[in-house]
Design a protein around this nucleic acid. Structure first.
Length: 571
RNA sequence: GGGCUUGUGGCUUAGCCAGGAUAGAGCGCCGGGCUUCUAACCCGGAUGUCGAGGGUUCGAAUCCCUCCAGGCCCGCCA
């Protein structure tokens, strides 16, 4: 980054990127010319760099021909000095914008810089909560949809200039944990040799549930454990904490394998122990929506919720909802913006939480919900032991990746092959999950999970490795920006778009837009690679193509980084 | 029963929120391309009543209504 840009970056603090500059400038000019507040400016596709259909909108308001109005808007745009140098043409009712060679040059130039696509620093801090699975068994293929969505979002927010803290909310005092604790007390559940903590806990949990089914009288014993832990009984507290810690240690290993890191693990029980939950309930008591009849609950019918929102049981213990409220109040006071990634099963409770926080005058989180992942034979259940664990998935995909690497690159030494296989496996898993819109429910499929072809993470890694290979063979070169072939221009244009994709993906909380972008970029590079020889070309063509390869490599690396996938140099 | 959500070629899916220029991909299928920068690649072809029906509009995959099908929720669980 040059000094001038650097100054603009910090002093003015606005998006200094070429694409975003031009996009915003055209949009402003269009708004003025068309008399529409936020005119839709789309990608021009094959027709142009940018395009708009606002003439239709105006035509409707003015009851006149859209073609004529397009002409008028275009004429007025051509007068606008802020968009000088941009060619404006109409095609019937559509207005097309052509930016010219300077645009591509400076876009590719900025793509050569490390950190390309990073947006200017934003004020405030974001707290992002994801995964937060109950510590009663290993993470499974459903949980990691949450994990990967959340982790990609956190990377996306950082890329967009936000300061982010990622939290895992540990549900350490629920009924499930009480069942695990009961199992540790009454069942022979010693940890097996080499067994991961989370898998061990699952075994105890499943066994505990089996006992519970045989003898419903155990419920009373479990209730007692829950009351004891809420009261702060030290022996029970240690029992719970040990079980949860063991499970969590296993989670951390799995998360680490997926390149996911949480900044902080926040324990639910802390909000009981430190009095926050009690204080919260006292505040709730003063609300007009509050009812107390042994239980303590809120009537949120005015907010559109039929069901009573219960916050304390008649035996005096708090429920999850109350502790979650306390947690969010704490987050709201320490951060400027809260984001939660939660399963679709939390939609109702999430909406109730938000409504209650608003009634209390506290900040409410933005919640990203994702739909369920099921198995071909039905929904997953930790309790019934019906799930494909994340560890099992990673192991299988890694094994398959190792096979693939070995068959392609037997020249590499063992360590390198394993390293690549590991990265490829994580790429395949993360990409498979993040490429699908969160609102689609899916069925887990081994065949697809083990496929590394197009529209996969490894496909994108491969494009990056090919670019690296060219660059390492090319040696030093001076950048040039003469792009004339169709595949060169298409590639350069797509590179230019990256910061815009980051902006929109963050704005709409849609990580899958980055996945789509990465795939398109790899597609365009592969076509370019196929048709335009780089190393065998000469002169300015060679320099320009090398420049384009370097910009692509860099953009792919930044994109992969945002997706939490290793940008492999060779594979 | 009520609420939320999804339905796009054989399969998986983008586009839907902010309606517009021939609905875009991948897998699979058919046919091509490695003495040339890594073929985890590329090119060409076939395959679509955008769940069904109505409505709004100059224009609907996209907005509205009804219906059908799948998923999720409706607990003093989390």
């Amino acid at each position: 980054m040059r000094l001038g840009e650097l100054l603009q970056f910090f002093v003015i603090g606005r998006d200094h990127n070429m694409y975003l500059e031009i996009f915003d400038t055209i949009q402003r000019a269009l708004s003025a010319a068309a008399g529409i507040p936020n005119p839709i400016l789309t990608d021009g596709g094959t027709h142009a760099d940018f395009a708009t259909a606002v003439a239709f909108e105006r035509a409707k308001q003015l009851h006149r021909s859209p073609v004529q109005i397009a002409e008028e808007i275009a004429a007025s745009l051509r007068e606008d000095r802020s968009i000088q140098g941009i060619r404006i043409e109409t095609k019937g009712p559509y207005i097309n914008f052509h930016t010219g060679a300077g645009f591509l040059k400076s876009s590719v130039e900025s793509a050569l810089q490390p950190g390309y696509g990073t947006l200017p620093m934003k004020e405030g801090r974001v707290v992002l909560e994801h995964t937060s699975a109950n510590p009663n068994g290993p993470l499974h293929v459903g949980h990691i949809r949450n994990t990967i969505l959340g982790d990609t979002l956190s990377r996306l927010f950082r890329k967009a200039g936000h300061r982010v803290e990622v939290q895992y909310y540990v549900n350490d005092m629920g009924r499930q944990i009480a069942i695990v604790a009961w199992g540790f007390l009454h069942l022979d559940g010693a940890r097996k040799d080499g067994e991961k903590g989370d898998h061990h806990v699952a075994r105890v949990y499943i066994a505990g549930n089996r006992e519970l089914e045989k003898d419903p009288g155990i419920v009373a014993e479990i209730d007692l454990l829950m009351q004891q832990v809420e009261r702060g009984d030290p022996t029970t507290a240690v029992l719970f904490r040990n079980a949860v810690t063991e499970c969590l240690e296993g989670f951390k290993v799995t998360l680490g394998r997926l390149s996911v890191r949480h900044d902080r693990f926040v324990w639910e029980s802390d909000f009981v122990r430190n009095g926050d939950t009690e204080r919260l309930l006292n505040r709730v008591r003063r609300m007009e929506e509050c009812h107390e009849d042994g239980r303590l609950w809120l009537d949120l019918s005015k907010e559109g919720f039929e069901k009573e929102y219960i916050l304390r049981r008649s035996d005096g213990t708090s429920v999850y909802a109350a502790r979650d409220l306390a947690y969010h109040i704490w987050k709201g006071r320490n951060f400027d913006h809260m984001i939660d990634v939660l399963g679709a099963d939390h939609k109702l409770i999430g909406a109730q939480l938000k409504a209650t926080l608003k009634l209390m005058g506290e900040k409410a989180p933005e919640i990203v919900h994702f739909e369920f992942v099921s198995l071909p034979e039905g929904s997953m259940s930790t309790r019934a032991g019906k799930f494909v664990s994340a560890d099992e998935l990673i192991d299988e995909v890694s094994r398959r990746a190792y096979e693939e690497v070995t068959s392609r690159r037997d020249d590499l030494d063992e360590g390198a092959k394993q390293e690549i296989a590991r990265s490829v496996a994580i790429a395949a898993i993360r990409y498979d999950i993040v490429k699908i819109s969160p609102e689609k429910s899916t069925v887990f499929n081994w065949k697809e999970a083990l496929d590394f072809e197009r529209q996969s993470g490894p496909y994108i890694q491969y494009a990056h490795a090919r670019a690296c290979s060219i660059l390492s063979k090319a040696g030093e070169f001076d950048p040039e920006f003469e792009f004339t072939m169709e595949s060169e221009i298409a590639l350069a244009k797509h590179i230019a778009k990256f910061p815009y994709v980051i902006r929109i993906a963050v704005r709409d909380l849609k990580p899958h837009l980055v996945a789509t972008y990465a795939r398109e970029l790899a597609d365009l590079f592969n076509v370019f690679y196929q048709f335009e020889p780089v190393l065998k070309s000469t002169g300015i063509t060679r320099q320009s193509r090398l420049t384009l390869v370097k910009a692509t490599k860099n953009t792919l690396a930044e994109t992969l980084g945002t997706l939490g996938i290793d940008a492999l140099v060779t594979m």
